[in-house]
């Protein structure tokens, strides 16, 4: 898998973790269980800052732009379709065994696509 694509997937998961800990219900549950949700949230934000510096500026810019626009920048391909907008993806890309070795974007919505292994 393309290293930048791996980092973009990890950044997306990190953003989901941050969003979750910003949700009252999840934070309340975690606090009830004795987990330090507030402290974890602050540390996750700092980790995100540091992690972003390792991502190519071009892809980071696209990621941020897509996140602002759609709320999610990276989506899986499901049955040959973009899971974000459900557009059918080009067959040539979907059938390429090396499709994750470079970053592909959806021709319709522009989201970054990966294929689950």
């Amino acid at each position: 898998m393309d290293k930048q694509l791996e980092k973009l997937i990890s950044l997306h998961d990190l953003d989901v973790m941050i969003a979750d800990l910003n949700r009252k219900d999840i934070r309340k549950r975690e606090t009830e269980m004795g987990l330090h949700a507030e402290g974890a949230l602050e540390e996750l934000k700092e980790l995100r800052e540091a992690f972003c510096k390792n991502i190519n500026r071009k892809w980071r810019g696209l990621y941020n732009q897509l996140t602002r626009h759609y709320g999610n920048a990276v989506v899986p391909a499901l049955m040959g379709r973009c899971a974000g907008c459900l557009t059918r993806l080009p067959t040539a890309i979907c059938s390429d065994p090396d499709r994750n070795l470079k970053i592909h974007t959806c021709p319709t919505c522009g989201r970054i696509i990966y294929w689950a292994d």
């Binding site: 990890s10 998961d13 990190l14 973790m17 269980m33 004795g34 987990l35 330090h36 949700a37 402290g39 974890a40 540390e43 996750l44 980790l47």
Partner: peptide, 15 residues
């Protein structure tokens, strides 16, 4: 990697 990040910002021992 994602689970490790979560553990590093706060171990998830709940009991």
């Amino acid at each position: 990697g994602a689970l490790d990040v979560r553990e590093k910002v706060g171990a998830t021992v709940v009991y």
